[in-house]
Each structure stands twice: as structure tokens, then as C-alpha cells.
Design a protein around this nucleic acid. Structure first.
Lengths: 144, 144
DNA sequence: ATATAAAAAGACCTACATGTCTTTTTATAA
DNA sequence: TTATAAAAAGACATGTAGGTCTTTTTATAT
């Protein structure tokens, strides 16, 4: 359902947060190696996330990516919105230009609750909560 | 969530079924006009659906698209599978190669029920049930 | 038989997501 | 103050979904 770019973004931010907790600021080379993503493309994705102010970065020796306020939770929704665009959760599943409760497509009534469940899930889950699961060994970031 | 190609496929099949009920076999020109999709591309999508045996066609004068056994319901799942590929409902939402209940990604537990709800929905809904909603004026096929 | 109207087929094109390479900028260590 | 290590930036390349055009095949009406 999500594009590869969004997958890289999520994995990268989770890794950055996990390293930040340890007092480190990883660079894109380290990040891409750890999350198994294309190096240069990952750098670009992180640049875009930095521009969208979802993560911070410092250039130069000892630089890297980090969260300015690690306690300020970043929902997956914010990441999806930044990468996939604002319409991701609003466009009609049947492809109609105008589709709402008043003028529904034949999928509308059944599709809406599914999309709503997805929406609520990504608004509940955060980069921090994903990282915590990994730290508690309840989940993994590795692709092996 | 679904690609444009799948949207065209669903709208086209619903239209074909609605015309079949009236004893007609619409061609791709008529279909694309009615569902507001690109003519030649719609022809291709319908050819692929015919190859996948989700719809039948006859060439030549008076030809067009139709369902061999209109009473045999076609789930949206079958259409999605044919257009998007078999992995659509199985690939990991976090991008991990191996991700299951035993070796979960940090999204897994929360993502699985959302995907399951989508899966059940598209297995319950059929081309016929969508068409019936339109015939009962409970929904519309038009993009206006 | 022939003309016609339709789908089938396949070459080609376009836009965008994905990915790579090179150069520039900048912060810090030495 | 110079060298270095890092991100930023942007040009370039590739892959794939989406879309168009032309030719071929075939069923049917005449």
C-alpha cells in the first residue's frame, strides 16, 4: 500500500531515533547500510524529510541526522503525508473525482471504514513507538 | 491504495455487467466513454482481464465484452490480484523481506488487521454487488 | 465473396517513482 | 588556517505504470 520511498523514510527515521537515544547522530551512509536501502537515494529522502522539518541535520565533520526534540512524537501519518502527498487518505478508491457520503461510488460505504482504520493506525503509531518495540525485542528492523 | 489501472478495470467490469443485464455487449469505445477512462488503454486493460478469464469478448461486427456466466460472482479481490499482482495483500508494509508473526516488523501487529479488513472487504464485494448498488440508485459510476 | 466493425496485438511514447553520480557547502578537528 | 568529513544540491540514469498509435485478425452483415 505504501511506496518504497515511504518505507525507506520510516525505517530511516526509526534508526535515527534509536541511535539518538544512544547519543549518536548517524549519517546517511550508516543509515542506508543498517536499513538496507540505496545510499544516495536514502540521502535524498532524508533531505526531503529535513526540509519538511520531520528530522534535523548538521553538516560537516561529526554531522548527521537527529531529532531536535526527541520527546515530540512523530506519527507515521506525518511521514506518509510528507512522502506520498496530502491526498493519500482522501482520494476515492474507485477513482471517482467527486465521491462522498452524499454522492458515493459503489465502493464508498465499504471502503471508508477500511481507510479510516488505516488512518487511525498511522496516527496512533509513531517513530518512537516503533523504535521502542525494537528495543524491547518485540520486532526487528533487519531485512534478513 | 489501488492503482489507476485497477480503478479502470473495476469501473469497466461494472459497466459491462450492467449492459449485459440489458442484453447488450459493449465495446471498449463505449465503455471508456461511459466510465471516463482513456480509450486505448482501457482496451488493453480489458484484453488482460479477458486473458485472465475474468471477462469474455467476441471480435467482429456486433462484438464486445460480456460475462459468460453472469451469475458467477467476480470478487474485487480477483480483479485486484489480476491487475496488481499476487503479492498485493501479502507484502510487508514496512518493506522487510521476511516479516510474519514470528519475525515481525514493528508495524506488523497493527498493520495486519487493517490489511485483513481490506482483504475481507474485497472478498465480500463483487462486480455484481457494485452494479446492483448503482441500479438501486444507492451509488454512482459517473465521475462528474 | 466482400466489406465492415469489432477486438487483439504489439510497437511506441510519456510521466513519474526510483536510483546514481558529481560538485558544492559547511562544520569541526588538527 | 587547512584538511577533512559530513550533508546539500542538482544533474543524470533507469524502471515501471500509464497511455497512444498502427496493424492484424476475425466474426458477421450484405
Amino acid at each position: 500500500m505504501l511506496g518504497k520511498t515511504t518505507e525507506y523514510a520510516l525505517r530511516a527515521l526509526v534508526y535515527v531515533y534509536m541511535q539518538n537515544i544512544k547519543g549518536k547522530r548517524p549519517g546517511y551512509k550508516e543509515i542506508s547500510k543498517e536499513i538496507d536501502s540505496p545510499e544516495q537515494f536514502t540521502a535524498k529522502v532524508l533531505q526531503n524529510l529535513a526540509r519538511a522539518e520531520l528530522v534535523s541535520s548538521v553538516k560537516g565533520r561529526g554531522g548527521g541526522f537527529f531529532f531536535d526534540e526527541p520527546t515530540n512524537p512523530i506519527t507515521l501519518f506525518k511521514v506518509i503525508e510528507a512522502v506520498e502527498g496530502k491526498e493519500y487518505f482522501s482520494k476515492c478508491g474507485f477513482g471517482l473525482k467527486r465521491c462522498d457520503a452524499n454522492n458515493p461510488c459503489p465502493l464508498h460505504d465499504n471502503y471508508a471504514p477500511v481507510r479510516e482504520a488505516f488512518y487511525e493506525m498511522v496516527n496512533k503509531m509513531t517513530i518512537q513507538s516503533l523504535a521502542n518495540k525494537i528495543n524491547k525485542h518485540e520486532a526487528t528492523l533487519s531485512r534478513i
